[in-house]
Simulated scan of single mutants.
Amino acid sequence: MLVRKGFGLKAAAIGGLATMLIAAMPAAHADDRLIVFAAASMKNALDAVNTACEADVGEAATISYAASSALAKQIEGGAPADIFISADLDWMKYLSDKKLIKPDTEVKLLGNEIVLVAPKDSTAETKIEKRFDLARLIGESRLAMGDSKAVPAGKYAKAALEELGVWSSVEGKVAQAENVRAALKLVSTGEAALGIVYATDAHAEPGVKVIGTFPEDSHPPIVYPVAQTADSKDKDAPAFLKCLQSVKAGELFKAQDFTVLTPSN
């Protein structure tokens, strides 16, 4: 996790959770189970969808969550994933360009928003607009967000702050995390005064509150694509992909504030 010097061991430890997630990824197909690599921001919703789809698929998938960038690199390195769900189009394209996914299985599954969050007991208020005084709101604390060079949520956040003309004023106050859930944790524990996360993450964390939503035109569209990996031979992968696009899955995604982009099966 990239945390500015002096930010504290607690922040680094929180970011270490993401590393532990990656380290805990399955090294091989245990009992030929379906293995899914999914963006960390999907955990609450996808866990529910996995349970709902078990009867249709014939098994519950084994799901590993981390930053899309880390997961894509794992797949490139030979990790035994059957299905990859990215939080942006870039990392899916990264694998596609290397012929590591089955192109005819790729679907734009979900959409999302990015929001500005504060600890639940914070009195911070703002209107997100051109040149709003984000630096003043942060004060002597930090702004938590995903790594702006690799993590999709961080890339979206930086793009929005640049478009709104405030990036240069807060760049030195940013605590960059290995994934969006680690950034969220920094805010919920009070290690950071503010954070930029997905709306779905804010929905899932009672320790934070949303104080503003970034305009859609301030950043690239947030799209979660899904595809089966090129090396996958799991017989249940097609059924899982189909169930992800079902009405019941769509309702569970919507319950966590995702936007469903695919027609329901």
Rank of each mutant, 00 (worst) to 15 (best):
Y65R: 07
N44L: 14
L134Q: 05
T262K: 02
R131Y: 08
D257Q: 12
A157D: 08
T189E: 15
L95K: 03
D236H: 14
A153K: 02
E216F: 05
I75W: 04
Y65P: 04
L244S: 06
P220V: 08
K185M: 13
V107C: 00
V36Y: 11
C53H: 03
D236P: 00
K209S: 04
P220F: 11
L161P: 01
Q176T: 03
D133T: 00
S218V: 11
K120C: 00
V151Y: 12
K155F: 09
A124K: 10
A183D: 09
A61D: 04
T189G: 03
G15T: 00
Y156K: 01
A28R: 02
A182E: 15
S86E: 14
A193F: 02
I85Q: 07
F214D: 10
S148G: 05
E76T: 08
V180R: 00
A159C: 06
L95M: 02
K254Q: 15
P80G: 09
E59F: 00
K155P: 02
K127T: 15
L261D: 05
K99I: 02
P152T: 14
N50S: 06
S64N: 12
A199T: 05
V197K: 02
N44M: 12
G195T: 11
I222E: 11
S218W: 13
V223G: 04
F240E: 11
K120F: 07
T189I: 01
A27R: 13
F258V: 06
E216Q: 13
G212I: 11
A227L: 13
S96G: 15
A27H: 10
V174H: 01
D56W: 01
S41I: 14
A30H: 09
S64P: 02
A27Y: 08
R181Y: 04
L2M: 06
A227G: 03
M1G: 14
D90K: 08
A38T: 13
P238G: 07
K5L: 07
R142G: 04
A39D: 15
